[in-house]
Design a protein around this nucleic acid. Sequence first.
DNA 1: TTACTTTGTGCCTCTGTGAAACAAAACAGG
DNA 2: CCTGTTTTGTTTCACAGAGGCACAAAGTAA
Lengths: 404, 404
Amino acid sequence: MTQTRTRPDRGRSALGPALELVHTGRAPTRAVLTAELGVTRATAGAVAAELQGLGLITVDSSPSTAGAQGRPSHRLAVDPAGPVVLAAQVHTDGFRAALVGLGGRVVATAPGCGPVEADPAQVLGEVVAAGRRLLEESGRRCVGAGLAVPSAVAEPEGTALNPLHLPWAPGAPVREVFRRCLADAGISAGADDGVAANDVNLGALAEHRHGAGRGARQLLCVATGHRGVGGALVVDGRLHTGSSGLALEVGHLTVDPEGRACHCGGRGCLDVETDPLALLEAAGRRPGPEVSLLHQAIDLLRTEYHADPAVRAAAHRLVDRLALGLAGLVNILDPDRIILGGLHRELLRFDGDRLRAVLDGRSLWGRGKTFAVLPCSLDHNSLVGAAELAWQPVLDDPLRVQVV
Amino acid sequence: MTQTRTRPDRGRSALGPALELVHTGRAPTRAVLTAELGVTRATAGAVAAELQGLGLITVDSSPSTAGAQGRPSHRLAVDPAGPVVLAAQVHTDGFRAALVGLGGRVVATAPGCGPVEADPAQVLGEVVAAGRRLLEESGRRCVGAGLAVPSAVAEPEGTALNPLHLPWAPGAPVREVFRRCLADAGISAGADDGVAANDVNLGALAEHRHGAGRGARQLLCVATGHRGVGGALVVDGRLHTGSSGLALEVGHLTVDPEGRACHCGGRGCLDVETDPLALLEAAGRRPGPEVSLLHQAIDLLRTEYHADPAVRAAAHRLVDRLALGLAGLVNILDPDRIILGGLHRELLRFDGDRLRAVLDGRSLWGRGKTFAVLPCSLDHNSLVGAAELAWQPVLDDPLRVQVV
DNA sequence: TTACTTTGTGCCTCTGTGAAACAAAACAGG
DNA sequence: CCTGTTTTGTTTCACAGAGGCACAAAGTAA
């Protein structure tokens, strides 16, 4: 009997790694690409030419402002006219859609307000419709789609496990619904086109590839959205999602045994002690209904942190608890970099010294000296992360863009 | 100018994965090897023949007791006469040396008693000498050496960061000392021959490859030695050591805010609340000096758990605290399997229902149903793990055995 | 200008692996 | 016992990815 292998052809095996290097900006020239891939110049040249032929990167052989000795190297860059992916995000107050090219470049964005409906199909239908409009306006080719949701997403099922701050039922099959919406809108090509993941996880992935997390080997991200706290860990460039997608759901770490009651049944959880509502209440402010809690909390810090001692005390209170939670994570995970997002980023900016001091004091075995704490650096990092996820098949095998 | 690539030749690229499949018992026949590698029968045959030629595996084409239809497949197995690695372990009461073949087969063992000297070179010199005697007696070829120590080991420095229960100074360069001892004994071939890591980490690795952790995607191990508590996480077959080797050093998780004082400065740490000494004291027993605390504690459980209510109550106390610590880890790491070693294994055996109940009650979002809790299944799992680490270069590129 | 350095390109070769056809070793059924 | 079926091992051929090498190209340094 004849025998056919089950796995698909690898194609040029250095193609994927090469595209990833250009995508993340680690291969600005062909010479660097040669070194990073560990191949000969001939191979690197062939690979670059093939990626250029696929319309994914540009190879610029024009006079570069080199200044160095020897023949100047051709400059490599992501093709700004290349294909895009559709990135979508659902959050507590609405949704966002965007087109994102390689290199994490956001090409177009469309916001949408809430409230988020109880039926995921309704919201995702609107997001996808917005994305479709963006695609039509831009006239660009779409090679994938990714969705960020404020909930852990189980793999391989693609279900939202704990959409605590959305009116969705736990276990909602968000990925399948998303795929159906894509198919209905005529966007997706195959049935496995369209991926979904947790927003903080995706934000961490984006920061690792294009932002403040570049080069980190063990990147811990903690962020508040409008409600609740999320965490993520990127190890050697890959998301650590745990066995069921619930890893790093750090919202219910205890950071104050006598703290306020949490809907999880515990007391003094990171979630209720360090989110925007906690800051407003600690400062004695009544949250207004007009704008999001996150914006109210950030505004409060920006306008009154230096003026009002009560606001400063409230910030201190949150920072102490945040640092306690981070110290627990540091002692278990041993990251080399920590990135804070949302309100936590602002707390770091206004009260970073205190955060660092508490954190160092609680880190065992002098670990405090081994990691940096940074604010997140990308706008829309969850969107960019959703795009990363959508790009992944292409990064793994760039030849897909011509097949699809 | 001519151009030579920097990376070494890959050789036959399926060679390493093939050896690993046989090594871990996942490829008992050539047909299975073909399927697991995802290559054609021709390739699998060539690979198996090459590994056989290297003296690493045996290919048995004799009449197998098949029973199934079709031509019986050749049976693959680790060559019992193949090369070995030297595995060494230092613990609080002494050391152990062993020769370990592929497949985690312990070929020979030599124990050594304590006390452990303050100078690492002295202890490691003794271990290596014991290993050398084993090698001479057996007459087998040695292709690597690994060392397990009761401390986190920093990479890439190879220093013992927190040898809390040994008289060694933090930061002792154990790997370099180990390598020097190997060189002095004429065992090692190259300068990079000889690796060192934490004992619980290595135990987890061994359990994952050859024991109760087989097939787990996210394996969490927690174990007590004679003193203290260690943890480890194996993700997709690789140890999660963190950025400085201190990940999963879980001994100082707080499991009882009003618990006893710990030398780390905290209170109620897992370390002091669930180790052998804690059980003896909770049961109102005075620890004797004759045998190790671990043996005294295990003996106490075995002989009096069912007879003495005070012992049962002490076990309950430890189990509750252990479960609390595990729940915290589960909620952050989301493992699909947990393996307990040392005294914790005995607590699981005698009081498993209670452990499981507390653990499930504390696991958020119904995660309790997604993981198993098992006792560790290998004798000397730290030794076998040290051997795994030593074997790794050969598993990555089996052609090394002929070069060395 | 000339020498030197670094990078890009064309050509040949090597090697790992797939594809296909065939042989071998078991079982099932007459 | 013979024949057909199923599964596995073996042989042969071919192809593609990547290395090795020589040479060309494009800068800087003197």
